[in-house]
Design a protein around this nucleic acid. Structure first.
Lengths: 196, 196
DNA sequence: CTATTTTTGAACTAAATAGTACATAAAGCC
DNA sequence: GGCTTTATGTACTATTTAGTTCAAAAATAG
């Protein structure tokens, strides 16, 4: 990278953004105050406002990064273990996380969708857009699984994708509402049935 | 009611609580600042702190009231139109609300579950308790519908109740994530299939 | 070396937050 | 009527919030 004039940046913008994304993911948007967020990002306030325009702008970029990264990871998983298995793996990772840590981070888009719904129309709109990419990715994945015969259900892939993603969101919300384990185990089984 | 000594209350505690519950339902807990909440409740700050211990205590009572009221309304609906129809009606009310207002208020317990999950462990725990009452109510309702033959599915009512409530939550979250109408319509159909 | 450009550190600001203090108002009791 | 008790209105407080200001630091260009 070409070195320009002026004092060189001490902070790595991409790294700071990635750290912010993780902090938002764990704590939500409003609950991630700058006083807590900045130490987590490893930068000081002046550098922050010099690099990012505002907290809202940072969050917007974090949402975008989250979508890109998560999709990249999912595609890697799909390449590795096949379409249907990858879809099932998402559910199993979630249940494993719950068992290991007693909580789930869930999906940044889903929790942001809830948090921004009444308060930040602009962010809420962006959540909607990013969400469509997940729908498309899952549709494409289910299509692959149907073609390979991994999924027998002949319902059009788009509809199955909607059902899958909604069942996944339902599971996450039901976990966070504090439902007992037996209910959650049944929901997991139910999601797998969508993919039969 | 017996009049005690001292200046009589100008505000009706039950009414103020009901108004608070509705405001929380529409705006969430954190987003309902006292400065906005108090006018909505129709009382002044001094009366508020005299009547309710704190904002958290008020919210806790609002959660409780929400559960009681919502269940009462559901049971009335069930008495009026039968178990299965009442379960379907919840979904249709939601879709109608979306069509009429462009938004959904959703379920106070579900959104509070999300909001309190990382921030207010005590409230989060209460959400979990109240949530169990809904599970039980739906289980009982599905049991009724099975007995009457309205629901043919022989899966044990408790499991169907979990699936129903999770599908409902999935629908709400998917709405708030901004999914397109065709996806939502299919989810509605999917919920009805659970009750076949 | 000096001027210019960009980044950073520390202190500050304005607004919003939940909650308090205290005097005053309005009732019953004797 | 005066004393006690309870409710209310006004003003205040301490903390937290996102965001700004401005001088000092650190690099390059000439």
């Amino acid at each position: 990278m070409k070195q320009t004039r002026g004092r060189p940046k001490a902070c790595d913008e991409d790294e700071a953004l990635a750290l912010a994304m993780n902090y938002f993911w764990e704590h939500g948007y409003d609950n991630a105050s700058l006083d807590k967020l900045l130490p987590a990002m490893g930068i000081k306030k002046s550098s922050f406002y010099h690099t990012f325009k505002s907290k809202e702008e940072l969050f917007s970029r974090a949402l975008h990064l989250y979508r890109e990264e998560t999709q990249k990871e999912f595609i890697a998983l799909r390449d590795e273990m096949g379409a249907k298995n990858a879809l099932i793996m998402i559910v199993e990772f979630t249940m494993q996380e719950l068992q290991d840590t007693g909580k789930v981070k869930g999906c940044l888009l889903v929790s942001s969708g809830q948090e921004c719904y009444n308060k930040y129309p602009h962010l809420s709109q962006q959540v909607g857009q990013e969400f469509l990419y997940f729908l498309k990715l899952f549709e494409e994945t289910i299509q692959m699984a149907q073609t390979k015969g991994e999924i027998k259900n002949t319902l059009v892939a788009k509809r199955l994708a909607g059902r899958y993603i909604s069942a996944l969101n339902g599971l996450l919300v039901t976990i966070q509402a504090g439902a007992p384990k037996e209910v959650l185990d049944d929901l997991m089984e139910n999601i797998k049935e969508i993919l039969e």
